[in-house]
Amino acid sequence: MSEAPSTASGWIDEHHNGVRYGLQGDVIADEQSAIQRITVIHSHRYGNGLLLDGCWMTAEHQERHYHEPLVHPALCAARSIDRVLVIGGGDGGTARECLRHHAVKHVDLVEIDGRVVELSQKHLAAIGGGCWSDPRFQLTVGDGIAWVGEASDASYDVVLVDGSDPAGPAEGLFNRSFFQHCRRILKPGGVFATQSESPEAFRAVHIDTVRMLREVFGHADPLYGWVPMYPSGWWSWTFAASDGPRYRSPDPERAAAIGPGCDIWSPRWQAGAFEAIPASIERELSA
């Protein structure tokens, strides 16, 4: 069994490489599922939040910092957005943002742990919003790696990976075979996106992920932003396509429809976030 997060003196802490990342609050649910430890907290600053195996996943007043940058660069740039696949994302936030695009006809969400969905629906209902009852949405509790491996060629317009850190059930989301299958199941003009960790707290994983996606897809670039509750607060998402870096050029009509409802994402923010690559990382990726 995994260890519960530290909760001394009313603080809920994630420990990573000698640093604590914590919120003041109270634990409202803490259980071991068949797959991982799931902890739900109420914090005084960010509302209800979720940890998996003691690592921060999301919170009500932080989630837009993560979900908007993952979703909208991809959905504003793919040639078509009829069919979207989300791997992970059991809190519903990524699916919610996808379904804001009226051109989306179907979203498959494949989450390995059904208890994450159940506890999110109960304690983090605002994050998923109306996605759970949207007729375009289909939830499958199962292995996303197996789903991608078994899906038909060219069956999705966009593939989004909303997984946890590369350990435990999410470890297989960061390897070449998985990325190759993601490319295979994308339609022409499709876009792939994944959270790609903190370039400070998980630098090696971040660099390896970007390099591997460039090798598999031909075109891939990291986008940098911030999720204050995550290790270091500095985060990244990496986008890939086989027909050029189309993810850098949002469709004006789609952007105009989505932008007014966003807290973080806009075409201007996106352009700056793609250009905010630190010199040392740019050198390392170019080596």
Score class of each variant (00 low, 15 high):
residue 185 I to G: 06
residue 203 R to V: 01
residue 170 A to D: 02
residue 187 K to H: 07
residue 265 W to H: 08
residue 147 W to Y: 14
residue 262 C to T: 11
residue 17 N to F: 06
residue 80 S to G: 13
residue 193 A to G: 08
residue 125 A to T: 13
residue 70 L to S: 03
residue 49 G to W: 07
residue 264 I to C: 09
residue 266 S to F: 00
residue 136 R to D: 01
residue 95 A to G: 13
residue 160 L to G: 10
residue 176 R to V: 06
residue 284 E to Q: 15
residue 149 G to F: 13
residue 206 H to M: 02
residue 279 A to G: 12
residue 156 Y to W: 11
residue 165 D to L: 00
residue 189 G to Q: 03
residue 228 P to T: 13
residue 206 H to L: 01
residue 13 D to A: 15
residue 193 A to L: 04
residue 8 A to W: 06
residue 57 M to W: 07
residue 237 W to Y: 11
residue 26 D to Q: 14
residue 157 D to I: 06
residue 247 Y to E: 05
residue 116 V to K: 14
residue 48 N to K: 13
residue 47 G to V: 10
residue 164 S to Q: 08
residue 59 A to C: 00
residue 173 L to F: 15
residue 285 L to V: 04
residue 228 P to R: 11
residue 244 G to I: 07
residue 234 W to R: 14
residue 243 D to Y: 15
residue 240 A to G: 12
residue 54 G to T: 05
residue 50 L to K: 07
residue 266 S to T: 00
residue 55 C to L: 12
residue 223 L to S: 08
residue 201 A to N: 01
residue 13 D to G: 12
residue 277 I to D: 14
residue 285 L to Y: 06
residue 154 A to S: 09
residue 125 A to H: 14
residue 251 D to C: 05
residue 39 T to W: 03
residue 53 D to Y: 11
residue 231 P to M: 07
residue 17 N to L: 14
residue 138 Q to A: 10
residue 229 M to S: 11
residue 261 G to M: 07
residue 197 E to R: 00
residue 252 P to Q: 08
residue 172 G to Y: 00
residue 116 V to H: 10
residue 256 A to C: 06
residue 103 A to F: 05
residue 205 V to I: 10
residue 51 L to E: 13
residue 252 P to F: 09
residue 131 C to A: 03
residue 236 S to G: 03
residue 37 R to Y: 15
residue 155 S to Q: 15
residue 126 A to F: 15
residue 173 L to Q: 14
residue 266 S to E: 00
residue 43 S to V: 13
residue 156 Y to S: 04
residue 59 A to Y: 01
residue 61 H to T: 05
residue 254 R to N: 10
residue 172 G to C: 01
residue 107 V to C: 02
residue 146 A to N: 02
residue 132 W to D: 10
residue 174 F to L: 01
residue 262 C to E: 14
